[in-house]
Design a binder for these strands. Structure first.
Lengths: 198, 198, 198, 198
DNA sequence: AATGAATGAGACTTCATTCAT
DNA sequence: TATGAATGAAGTCTCATTCAT
């Protein structure tokens, strides 16, 4: 019985993801993908309509566990502050463990002509909405300042975390995750905390 | 004095930049560039080693005014808080006016095989260092909290501003720059402000 | 068993060889080769790394029968004198039947940047070594003069035969091979014959 | 006053010759020639109709001293045997001192499509005719065997000497010219000597 | 379910030549 | 006499996709 990671599709996903992280979508050829996956070229076109659709499916495939991780994180949190901190931490951990995916997210997100552009944006929106919920909750509870827009702040915090995480992984991967998380926590939690004035 | 060579190069820079803004680097062909520039195809290869080197030169060419803008912004600011706010605003304005460039910065920054990778990284580092200086000044002056790392915070704020700016331009370009700047200012200035505790 | 791949390669070899015979390597385009072979352009690049590698493979492909011809010629000869004469004749026949190849051998042999340079040199060395063996045998048997260097003489005789053969084919192709062979035989066999003094 | 070697044409000749010897006619670009010559690209087209005509003129320029050398060699020789030996030696010396030219002679001689093909062939014929004269003289004098064709033998000896010389310069340049000349002399003089039978 | 040879549109690049200065 | 920017035809090569097996 074939385990999930042995299936042809999954081998193609892994190969495509690691290659696209290294060289980008356009920079990665179908030849390279099938070679790394250890299958023949036609196999891609047997399973998918094309290269772009393979990536689209790959994104969808990796999306569910990510969503679940964020959902669970948000549910487990007792307060908006704790939630925000936990979400940042969850994002950092996810980026650390799915660096290839994260890199792809950042570098391919703004390529509007891509077939899977919508899928990628939906993923991003989904993640941001968890941040937004925590921030909105905090504002409603009076612990976060009310003069910020929850959606804007969520997007900003998400972007800050992603870029910081990539910097971290590229320039100082030896720094423990805790240190990075703490730095972001200080910046982020203060940014939204109420009872202060700019 | 503008030589004929300089004129031609500039026409190629303008054509390439506007096209790359529309379609990305890989999506733009040399044929399109020379057609828009009104020169022959061989002209690109007379002046540059190839398409990538044209873009590299383009980046270098447009880099100086950008650096100057940030330098002047930092110098004109009376206090670290004002400086930080002005830098954010300068970054937003630059992204608005050089959207093609900004998009390229984000999408090509992590593509290590590109010939202009180093140039792009130097540009990014240069911009971030202005943020870092303002933050370090603020920490030294006691107006910014001392438990954050200036370099880390600079990179985080830069990333936050870039992603917010791209979101803005893509999803709600009708929002005035002032509104965006104000939102980021609130988040950013509070994040680093001293006299508060997370 | 001829696979589809082998068939295609052979069509490309035939097309390339006949064209290069007419117009030389640089003068022959990939477009012409694929047109004559009746395949699509991409097929060349599916089977070979490039135009030069196609020719390299072509050389290697046609090399074995040539080597075999020389080997058999040498083995069939009863004495060193007969062997030398037979080798000259074999070389002439081969040049007559593979004029394209022979021309390429002479014109591309000293072009060190070509990818097939090594293959071509190996071919030349292989042919010359047959001459060398016959001459060395003759010297050992006392029928060839002992004051000549077998390797040097082999290379000289080979060169003499090639240049004579090309002259023949270009300037007086109507001359029968026998006449040419007899002229060279007279020059060559006397040159190495013992019992005389310069 | 400009010496002969300082003239623009001569600088172009030297540059072109050394480059063509390295990389062949087609492999050498006009850009490379003018760079090595230290002049601008347009200069070539000011002095010559094109790249091929530059080479044609270069051949003609180097032809006269070569012809003179052979003429003097032949005139100075007292007997046909001495003449033949001296001609071989003259050819070796010339190849040693004009290696680039010699290489070009061998590699470009059979490219029939070249504009200067005729010029090159005339040069070759001119050299061979000196050999032919010496051999014909020897046959008439009864010192060379009468069953060989003087023209054929001349061409064969010339080819043998050229290929031996290139082998020598490429594979064992440390061998003194005298040793090479002596080996060829033994082969050549015996080949044509009368009073022997194949 | 999978293969891999074949395709061909379209990309990048080369380079001999022209010409205004 | 000399320059060098500009040209564009023609070349080599890439690669997503197709399809007979």
């Amino acid at each position: 019985m074939a385990t999930r990671s042995d299936t042809t599709k999954c081998k193609l996903y892994d190969a495509a993801l690691s290659l696209i992280a290294e060289k980008g979508f356009t920079g990665t050829t179908v030849d390279e993908i099938v070679e790394r996956a250890g299958v023949a070229k036609g196999t891609v076109y047997y399973h998918f309509a094309g290269k772009a659709e393979l990536v689209e499916a790959l994104i969808a495939d990796r999306l569910t566990p990510l969503q679940e991780q964020f959902r669970a994180t948000l549910e487990a949190a007792s307060t908006p502050s704790v939630a925000l901190e936990a979400l940042v931490r969850a994002e950092l951990e996810w980026i650390r463990d799915n660096r290839a995916f994260a890199k792809m997210l950042v570098t391919e997100l703004w390529r509007e002509e891509r077939v899977w552009h919508d899928t990628l944006f939906a993923l991003r929106h989904s993640i941001i909405s968890y941040f937004e919920r925590a921030i909105a909750d905090g504002i409603a509870a009076g612990v976060f300042r009310s003069d910020i827009d929850a959606a804007f702040a969520a997007s900003a915090l998400f972007g800050m975390t992603v870029t910081s995480a990539l910097d971290w992984l590229v320039f100082s991967p030896e720094t423990p995750l805790d240190t990075v998380a703490e730095q972001i926590r200080r910046l982020a939690s203060m940014a939204v905390a109420s009872g202060t004035q700019a």
